[in-house]
C-alpha cells in the first residue's frame, strides 16, 4: 500500500496537480481517498500505472524510497506481515491480518491517553472528537484531588 499526496506525486512526475486529480477522478489511477488529502494505492497498481504512462522506473523507485510508501517496520521480536500480503484483497474482504490503525472516539483524558499510548507503540490512530477541541471534562476542572494540582 502506498500513501500519496496529490501535490507531491505531481511534482515527482512533473505534471500538474489537476492532472493527477483527474486521473484519480476518472478511475485511471485506482487510488482511494483517506483523510488529510491523502490517497492510498496498491503498490502493484502504482507501478503498473507508471509503466503505462511511460514514467521511468527511476522516478517510480525514487517515489517509493522517499517515504511515499507506508512501510512495515521490521521488528526483531516477531515477523511482520508484508504490506502487500495484507492489503491485496482489500475491498473484497481482507482476511490475512488486521489493519494497523485504531479509531478512538472521544477526546477526553481517557481518549487522549489511549491515543498517545497507541501512537507511540506503532499504530496509526484516528481520534474522533465531536466538539471543536480535545480536553474533555478534565479541562473544566479547576483543581484535582488529592494533590490540588491544576487540571491543565
Amino acid at each position: 500500500m502506498i500513501e500519496i499526496r496529490v501535490g507531491k506525486l505531481a511534482r515527482m512526475l512533473g505534471v500538474h496537480r489537476n492532472t493527477v486529480s483527474n486521473w484519480i477522478k476518472s478511475g485511471k489511477f485506482s487510488a482511494r481517498p483517506t483523510v488529510g488529502r491523502r490517497y492510498l494505492i496498491e503498490r502493484a497498481d502504482f507501478i503498473h500505472f507508471c509503466r503505462n504512462q511511460g514514467i521511468s522506473e527511476d522516478i517510480t523507485a525514487q517515489f517509493a524510497n522517499s517515504g511515499g510508501f507506508a512501510k512495515p517496520r521490521a521488528h526483531a521480536a516477531y515477523p511482520v506481515a508484508r504490506d502487500t500480503d495484507r492489503h491485496t484483497e482489500k475491498g473484497g474482504g481482507m482476511t490475512d491480518g488486521p489493519i494497523g490503525s485504531v479509531m478512538v472516539v472521544g477526546g477526553g483524558i481517557a481518549g487522549m491517553q489511549a491515543t498517545l499510548d497507541l501512537a507511540d507503540s506503532g499504530y496509526k490512530v484516528f481520534l474522533v472528537e465531536k466538539s471543536a477541541g480535545i480536553g474533555g471534562a478534565m479541562a473544566q476542572l479547576d483543581k484535582t484531588f488529592p494533590t490540588n494540582d491544576c487540571a491543565m
Binding site: G67, P98, Q113, G122, Y123
Partner: peptide, 28 residues
C-alpha cells in the same frame, strides 16, 4: 481521573494485542 487514565492505557493494550501483527504497518 487516575482510574480513567489507567484504563485508557488498558484499552490501548487490548487494541495493541489484537492488532499485533500489523504493528508499525501504517506509521511513519
Amino acid at each position: 481521573i487516575p482510574q480513567a487514565v489507567t484504563e485508557a492505557s488498558t484499552a490501548a493494550c487490548e487494541a495493541a494485542r489484537a492488532l499485533m501483527p500489523a504493528r508499525g504497518a501504517l506509521t511513519h
